[in-house]
Write a protein that binds this DNA or RNA. Structure first.
Lengths: 105, 105
DNA sequence: AGGTTATATAACGGATTTGTTATACAGAGA
DNA sequence: TCTCTGTATAACAAATCCGTTATATAACCT
């Protein structure tokens, strides 16, 4: 159970098509930051800031491997089930964004 | 099933503490606009615009009775279940906002 | 008709969002 | 060490959000 303020803050983070798409992709498993950069038509700093926002909201966990950083859904977030339930309402995202680096994903 | 764009637009409407609280109150039944005016510490025009935003998103239906307008959740909205599921995650809102008019609610 | 009440709209201001470009930092490898 | 790649931060601009006050509209009631 959450407060109105807490929930609205999380919803603000979720209320963006780029971030929703990122989350949907992470629902399919860990994603390298570089794959988002390849996937979306926005700059790398913009991607980085979207990720930071979701991380700060506690929705993501990161794992560094060499120079690559892999992000995944934080299953221990108090909002995890809410996020997943929302993502389940989204039609499958076109995953035509193959990462072009050696990030091992 | 929804598109990322459609869902993010609705989430943007939901991602506000005032609107979330209004929706939570409407979950308990139809609410007169005047009760929101009495309940929140913001101006009547601000209330009116919050209601318009939710109406335009298809989340609300209205019923006019004399000079009062009563709002309720639109159960036929494609996002109705999503909204209700989210509201169910909110701790009960303090309903200390009795309407001081004769709006018959 | 004229006044009162409930609601909506218009115009504006400050804060926030979301993108950009430029730059800094971190790790890998010759 | 120098360079390259991946990621983060800083500074800025355009757009949007959310409040305000002033005003318009709609319905009710003498």
């Amino acid at each position: 159970m959450h407060t109105v303020d807490d929930l609205s803050k999380v919803l603000k983070v979720l209320a963006d098509p780029t971030r929703l798409t990122m989350l949907k992709q992470m629902q399919g498993g860990e994603q390298c930051a570089c794959s988002f950069v390849d996937c979306f038509d926005i700059s790398q700093p913009a991607i980085s800031r979207h990720l930071k926002m979701m991380r700060q909201a506690g929705l993501l966990l990161e794992r560094r491997d060499k120079q690559w950083i892999h992000y995944r859904l934080n299953e221990t977030s108090p909002f995890y089930t809410i996020v997943v339930d929302l993502l389940d309402n989204i039609e499958t995202v076109d995953a035509s964004c193959d990462c072009e680096t050696d990030c091992a994903i």
